[in-house]
């Protein structure tokens, strides 16, 4: 994680600027989507704009949350466990991106 301070600092703020308006849209859309039944939720996510915005929220959100959680880890954990947690943190972010992108691809293009 060392020698990445400046790029992390910039990416965290750039992603925040994109996530701010995206989050407002997401908040107004996601509660009714989450409480919908299977067919309704699928039809909602199959709409191209919804797919793009949900995908963008998950992918940019994953980048943002990885940096934020890494900051928490290096602040409080000073043992060997730090590197293990930072690695798991990377896996969680990559897994989130893969899961969201793949799921949205299937719903949008495969059905």
């Amino acid at each position: 994680m060392s020698k990445k301070g400046t790029s992390s600092f910039i990416l965290q703020r750039a992603s925040a600027v994109v996530l701010a308006p995206l989050s407002i849209w997401f908040l107004f859309a996601i509660v009714s989507a989450l409480t919908a039944d299977y067919a309704t939720a699928r039809a909602w996510l199959a709409a191209p704009w919804n797919a793009a915005l949900v995908g963008g929220f998950f992918i940019i959100g994953a980048l943002h949350m990885r940096i934020g959680m890494a900051e928490i880890i290096v602040d409080y954990i000073h043992s060997w466990l730090k590197d293990v947690l930072l690695f798991i943190n990377w896996l969680a972010a990559l897994g989130l991106i893969a899961a969201a992108a793949w799921s949205i691809y299937i719903i949008s293009f495969v059905g």
Partner: peptide
């Protein structure tokens, strides 16, 4: 921030269910 981290991971399970696994979605 940590709540959102967990929330996004849980929501990813919902998404995976929606795409691949109706039982998981249920």
């Amino acid at each position: 921030g940590a709540v959102l981290y967990g929330g996004l991971l849980l929501m990813a399970l919902w998404l995976i269910g929606l795409a691949f696994n109706p039982a998981l979605f249920a």
